[in-house]
């Protein structure tokens, strides 16, 4: 391949020359190929010609960028993206990642245990707090039973996440929008709990402090929950009902801060 070719056919089959023209030649090969081109006029002419033809073809292709927007294509793009997202979600739920997510959910539950909430949450299931709050804190069993029905979305998938979660919950679910208070969303999940679908949004601020927001459909016939703020050791949580949805927010912050975050979500 490094010998000087004697025919045009050989030139076309020279991987070094092709890579040189296409900018993919390994740096350590560059000097050798350039030396060869300096002493081989036919190879020099061939590579110059290939590059020139490529440029002409590419220029013509780029004319497509100036074509008018095609609304039919734009609609098909959206439909394809939605289909592929669904495909990705199904593969995610059926594939090896499921184990990772199931484990992460357990970490979620256990994490609150580390914050001395887990034990308290178990007691809450007995009825001291609304069930959706209990589910958020300690729905360990429900989460485990419903592991196959979970989905997780990353920060760049929030639009899709909100659409999908809204469809699953049959309620319009809006982003908690804690970004304006310095938080970035880490992920969104949909959990299947005993009381129905539970949307979970995990946020983290610049100092690494996490807060978790949950949203669930309010049970028919039950009175709405007015805003309540509860302190549990170093953690605080708030919960309330608003327009048919039950909200809770939990974080290792003081009650004043959790109230501010709750107010931001309620706006």
């Amino acid at each position: 391949m490094t010998q000087d070719p004697t025919s045009d056919q050989d030139l076309g089959l020279d991987g070094d020359l092709l890579a040189y023209v296409d900018g993919t030649l390994a740096p350590e090969r560059m000097a050798e190929v350039e030396a060869r081109l300096a002493r081989d006029p036919e190879a020099r002419a061939a590579t110059a010609s290939w590059r020139h033809h490529d440029n002409l073809i590419r220029q013509m292709a780029q004319a497509a960028d100036d074509l008018p927007v095609n609304m039919r294509i734009a609609a098909l793009e959206r439909e394809l993206a939605a289909k592929l997202q669904a495909r990705k979600r199904r593969a995610f739920m059926m594939g090896p990642a499921l184990g990772r997510i199931a484990a992460s959910v357990l970490i979620f539950a256990a994490g609150w245990g580390a914050h001395s909430l887990y034990g308290s949450a178990i007691q809450m299931v007995g009825g001291a707090y609304p069930q959706f709050v209990s589910a958020t804190l300690a729905g360990h069993q429900a989460i485990r039973q419903a592991a196959l029905q979970q989905a997780e979305f990353l920060p760049d998938e929030m639009d899709t996440a909100l659409d999908w979660i809204s469809a699953q919950m049959q309620h319009k679910i809006d982003s908690p929008k804690l970004e304006r208070l310095g938080y970035e969303v880490e992920s969104a999940r949909l959990l299947a709990t005993e009381s129905g679908p539970l949307a979970i949004f995990h946020y983290r601020d610049g100092q690494g402090e996490r807060v978790t927001v949950s949203i669930a459909a309010h049970a028919p016939g039950q009175p709405d929950y007015t805003l309540r703020v509860v302190r549990q050791n170093s953690d605080s949580m708030a919960y309330w009902t608003d327009r048919g949805l039950d909200y809770s927010i939990i974080g290792s912050v003081d009650p004043g801060r959790i109230t501010t975050l709750a107010a931001a979500i309620r706006e």
Binding site: E77, K88, T160
Partner: peptide, 16 residues
């Protein structure tokens, strides 16, 4: 990069 963004970029390439 989201799937929607990916699809849009790739569609532009397909058009070329």
């Amino acid at each position: 990069m989201s799937l929607k963004t990916d699809v849009t970029l790739h569609t532009a390439s397909l058009r070329r």
